[in-house]
Computed example of a mutant assay.
Amino acid sequence: MTNTTFLPLWLAGSDSAAHYQPQALDEGDRQRLNKHPALAQRADWQVSRFLKQQAAAPVLSLSHSRGAALLAAGSGLGAVGVDIEYLKPRDFAALAQWCCSPQERQWLAQGGWQAEPYYRLWCLKEALIKAAGLAFPADLPQVGLRWRADGSVYLYAAEQEWQGVSARCGDWVLAAVWQSATPFTPQWHCAGEFPQPDGLVFFPATAEGFNRFSDRHSG
C-alpha cells in the first residue's frame, strides 16, 4: 500500500495584512527589515509574514503577488517550490519567446495565447526553478512541461521528473511542485476571505487530465 504525505500550503490575501505582527518576525526577517525598512509598509510583506507566523513550521517556499501570498511549510518533505501570480493581460506571445520551450510555445499558441494557461505554466516553471535550485530567469526555458510520445505530459527540471499541482484561486493562479518518492496530497489553509483553490490539476498527469488543464482559459 502506497503511503501519502500531506503538503501544508497556506494562502492569504490583502485582508490578512491587518493581522501581521512585526514583533513576531524571525531573526532573518528582522535583519532584512533593518536593511529595507520600506518593506514593512508593503501588503505583500505583511501578508507573507503573517502566513509564516500562522504556519509555525520551517518554510519550504514562499511566493506573493498583488497582495496575496502562498507558503509551503513543513519538515522532512524534501525539495518543494511554490509560486502564485495575479491574472492580468500581457503580450504572452512575446514573453513566451524567452521563457518557454518550442513545444510550450506551440501549446500556448494553439490555445490562442490565453492568460490562464500562460500563468499556470509560468507558476509551474518558477516553482520548479525554486525547488531545483536553478537560475532565474536563465533556466526558465529548460524547465516546465514535457510531452511523451503518447501525448501525456509531465513536469521536468534538472534532468528529473517532478510531481506537482496547479490551481486557480479567484483572480490568481498558483503551483506547488515537489521531488519525493512518496505521493503528496496538498493540505490547503486559506486565511481570511481568500478564495479556495479550484480547477486543480495534478502532475504526473494522464493525457485526459492534461486535456482538462490545457482547455482552461481566463474569462
Rank of each mutant, 00 (worst) to 15 (best):
H217C: 14
M1P: 10
R120G: 07
L155R: 00
F50P: 01
G28K: 00
P117F: 04
G74F: 05
L124E: 02
A94F: 07
G199T: 06
L51S: 06
W147C: 14
A191V: 09
K125F: 09
L39I: 12
D198H: 13
G144T: 04
V47K: 00
Y154T: 11
P197V: 05
F6V: 07
A96K: 01
D29M: 15
D26W: 03
W188R: 01
Q53N: 07
C169L: 15
K125I: 13
S48N: 04
G67I: 00
A69I: 00
T2P: 15
Q31L: 12
S65Q: 02
A205Y: 01
L71I: 08
F213I: 04
S61E: 05
T2R: 15
A158G: 07
H217D: 11
H189I: 14
S65T: 03
G112K: 07
G219F: 10
Q179L: 13
D15Q: 05
V201L: 14
L155V: 04
R32M: 04
A207M: 10
S16W: 03
V143R: 02
L87C: 09
R105A: 09
R146V: 11
R30P: 02
K35P: 06
R105T: 07
P102V: 08
C100R: 00
P102D: 13
P8D: 14
A131Y: 11
P137V: 00
Q23V: 14
A115I: 08
V80E: 11
K125M: 13
A109D: 14
A149H: 10
P89W: 08
L124D: 01
G13D: 00
I84G: 03
A115D: 07
Y20K: 03
C100K: 00
A55M: 08
D198T: 08
A93R: 02
K52L: 11
C169R: 01
A149Y: 06
H64D: 09
G164C: 12
Q53C: 09
L70I: 04
R216Y: 12
Q179G: 05
L77A: 04
R105F: 07
V47M: 04
P186Q: 01
L174T: 01
L25F: 06
A17L: 06
E85K: 02
G13K: 00
Q54V: 08
Q54N: 06
H36L: 15
A57G: 02
C190K: 04
